[in-house]
Write a protein that binds this DNA or RNA. Sequence first.
DNA 1: CCAGAAAACTTGACTCGTTCAAGAAAAGGG
DNA 2: CCCTTTTCTTGAACGAGTCAAGTTTTCTGG
Lengths: 151, 151
Amino acid sequence: MDDIDEATFEHLLRGADLRVTRPRLAVLRAVRRHPHADTGSVLAAVRAEEPTVSHQAVYDVLGALTDSGLVRRIQPAGSVARYELRVGDNHHHVVCRSCGAVADVDCAVGHTPCLTASDAGGFVIDEAEVTYWGLCPSCASRPTTSTDSSN
Amino acid sequence: MDDIDEATFEHLLRGADLRVTRPRLAVLRAVRRHPHADTGSVLAAVRAEEPTVSHQAVYDVLGALTDSGLVRRIQPAGSVARYELRVGDNHHHVVCRSCGAVADVDCAVGHTPCLTASDAGGFVIDEAEVTYWGLCPSCASRPTTSTDSSN
DNA sequence: CCAGAAAACTTGACTCGTTCAAGAAAAGGG
DNA sequence: CCCTTTTCTTGAACGAGTCAAGTTTTCTGG
């Protein structure tokens, strides 16, 4: 899901009943190029190639792509929304408590892990999302430096 | 962790090196009384008994209590921060996609579930947080009504 | 290939949860 | 009971995200 070319992006859009526009292609490229990027970063990346795209367009596009399942939105506590192209493979994320870096983690329990909650209090569950918290390699090796950024 | 009386709240605060103040006791009572309440709800509950408490005080108190581990902060994607008294027992949450309701779920896998990520990309993991998504009983039985609120 | 309808985009104002900053008030050790 | 430190009040500010009105673009169907 990372070796998608331009033509495939078009097919994905059409398959989702979405019109093919320059902003949408630019957003897809940006998300492919910057996994886990927030809206601001996507906007910046988009404007690098399409300088006239508005911030609202990026919000709209990310929303439409998320709704149709072409991108996945994640939002760890305390973070703004982040997006990724890798979709439909039930993977999870590790978030660094110090610098906020996000990385993918394949769940050891196979697909749809932990989806069997013992007692869901009557809820009809359709997804189990796992977020691991800890320290990224560089923050772990630089203990008390209190590095902070947003990726 | 739900049958905590006033004296215990004081002990908890002192044990965490926090001064015992009326706003703090009121916040603890509010969180006990309204599990998963957001800051606004806590503020309202606090003001019901202590009308002069400022919103900033509630933010400060919730922050201090969270830092010292007396309350737990959760923040499902798309939601504002929510707080609960139940702490240190590694339980998880189900969130209703329709109305945002939150309920506790004891993990079937025992304590520290899924904490064994296959490959964490070099991260040092200290917690695994599981969020289940679905529909609460009342939204599940009222399919397309698109109820929306924030609890 | 062109026109028309619907979808998508631009612009700009605005909402709301949360944070920042400075000074006043309370807690609790000595 | 006083002093130092922590905590609280007040009020302004920030920023991600949303709303709304009007314009532009896509793409279907003739």
